[in-house]
Design a protein around this nucleic acid. Structure first.
Lengths: 207, 207
DNA sequence: GTCTATACAATGATAGAC
DNA sequence: GTCTATCATTGTATAGAC
């Protein structure tokens, strides 16, 4: 898979080990209850090392979010450059988001908690940008699809939300029930429902 | 609206004031960073009062979740007893969930954080049951709709997730962007997309 | 750059009076 | 039932050696 290049953090250095340890602990316990002592113990270093690299507990937390978001943004950009029908491109975009989520579910859980939940004592961080980036990506494809007739005429926003909802619900299901594997194929089927409709039809263009 | 009866907590008693204050603070700051001192100050009482009624910080947190979930479960039960076509009943169920969410967004945010996020130091609590209750409610209606031909034949689970996703995305949008008002009408339109499909059709039964 | 040892503030919880 | 006063613990952060 040659995913070494795309790893958001390098695990070899002291700095990288601290990040990996902090991600795991923030993910499992949340920001506030995680102590600096736990992080440095898990990373096999001592406290001053963390303060040397990140300045504070807030510092390492912000570093995690910043570097992860930058990584996700980059991946999302390349995922937009695909060919095919709008329906296929929307399916691929959702699949890419989903696979990103699966490969980095620890950070996603953290971002999700920051995005929807109480700040839990963590410093403010604008994670909205990632969400808006995804919404804009879907919306742009939907707009082109409606214009070209590949998608049903109607509100761009509503169609965007329906597709985003299908993608989110699959990811959130795994977030809350890790044992319940929706999988790429499950996501595709749920999106098919949104494309084809839950109500019955007589005939449909392109079928 | 005569919603006084359905309030999950009474605000008059000392106990009720403590619950209201704790909900607001847990909602704004999260469980761990909220201190007992802050809660009692906001409620206008002193620390031993909280320990008298709830035994501990964990105790008041669990009381909030337990009483809120019992309330939501009851509301969901009555929301299931409606008449009309399956499509209309599913629309009404989603609208009811949405209005519950709007009237009690503080608790919902708390539940959401517990459900998807890290435990943030809070005691374990089975909030999954509420989610499963909603999923089961939708699923049961979808099953009947497919059996009666009112819904398109296909996977019950996939259709359920598509409808749940549309509902969730509208609530989550307001959770993260309180200024962005989707509203009951917005939710209805997004659900219409799921029912009617994002792809174009020539003709559809019942239109 | 990374360690040992420590300073200092804030927390959850309780004892005992009324 | 509700208060005042207090305790033991634990947290983040730093000073200074190497």
């Amino acid at each position: 898979m040659d995913a070494e290049d795309s790893k958001p953090v390098a695990e070899e250095s002291v700095r990288g080990r601290l990040l990996v340890a902090a991600i795991a602990l923030f993910n499992r316990k949340g920001y506030a209850p995680t102590t600096v002592r736990e992080i440095v113990d898990a990373a096999g270093v001592t406290k001053p090392a963390l303060y040397y690299y990140f300045g504070s507990k807030e510092g390492i937390y912000l570093a995690i979010l910043q570097e992860s978001l930058a990584y996700f943004e980059g991946e999302l950009q390349v995922a937009m450059e695909t060919e095919g029908s709008l329906r296929e491109r929307l399916q691929r975009l959702a699949a890419k988001v989903y696979s990103l989520f699966r490969d980095h579910s620890e950070v996603v859980r953290l971002v999700h908690a920051v995005y929807y939940g109480p700040p839990q004592g963590a410093p403010a961080f604008n994670v909205h940008r990632l969400h808006e980036l995804l919404v804009e990506a879907i919306k742009r494809l939907v707009e082109r699809g409606i214009a070209s007739g590949e998608l049903r005429a109607g509100s761009v926003e509503d169609t965007t939300l329906a597709l985003l909802g299908a993608t989110n619900v699959c990811m959130e299901l795994e977030l809350a029930h890790p044992e319940m594997q929706v999988g790429e194929t499950g996501l595709r089927r749920v999106l098919d429902v949104v494309f084809d409709g839950a109500s019955p039809v007589v005939s449909r263009i392109g079928e």
